[in-house]
Design a protein around this nucleic acid. Structure first.
Lengths: 108, 108
DNA sequence: ACACAGTATCTTGCAGTGCAAGGTACTAAC
DNA sequence: GTTAGTACCTTGCACTGCAAGATACTGTGT
């Protein structure tokens, strides 16, 4: 898969998954990997960015067969950001599709 | 507009416009800017990459009111690449949309 | 006891790409 | 001769995904 396509899109993907349920990092990789190839080295720095920006909070929870899990939960700011980025993605994807289909008129 | 969204997408946008007609760089900026904000500092290095990779050839043509224009024309390899990248984009966009809509089953 | 696989977190350094900023040069208009 | 528009190009920065590796806990097999 084209790596470049993912740039910036993974952030809204993570926000979107977290909008449905709290997740820990390892789980997020699994969820998103169903659709888009992604590695752990990408998710963890991204989650730390989101925390620094105030879009998520974290809490620890013990796990049955392994080390403790750090869950990530969207904040109010995170939900707003999720909403805005989702709309921006939709607009962007529509623009690209229009270009690829050769529609010259920017009106539609 | 989110800069990161554009990564890798501009290449297929350029290929797609060139698939419809030959263009010179300055013209491409205008065509694509109707849909997606883009600057000259992005287009020229990208066009040189495409030429290095053998996806386009160039020819000069005089202009009425200004310097000569360097037109870019897709090669056969360029047309194949355009086709493949277009399909990859479609698949990718569908995957992202499915993720954002919270569809958990990777089957669709 | 020991090795190994699976789970789970994290960091470092590299690579690709868009862009701001700047430079060059031609023509036309004022 | 100065400005605006067209047209080309380069340099260095910023952002982000990823490979690779480090750490550590649990359970299974030998």
């Amino acid at each position: 898969m084209n790596i470049q396509f993912k740039k910036g899109v993974l952030e809204i993907c993570v926000l979107s998954v977290l909008a449905h349920k709290d997740c820990y990092g390892y789980e997020l990789v699994g969820e998103i990997s169903k659709r888009i190839d992604i590695s752990e080295g990408t998710i963890y720095p991204l989650l730390h960015r989101l925390k620094d920006e105030g879009y998520v909070t974290t809490y620890l929870q013990e796990s049955a067969g392994g080390p403790s899990r750090k869950y990530y939960r969207l904040t109010e700011a995170g939900r707003n950001e999720e909403h805005e980025q989702k709309e921006e993605w939709m607009r962007f994807a529509a623009s690209v599709n229009a270009l690829l289909e050769g529609k010259n008129d920017a009106a539609d």
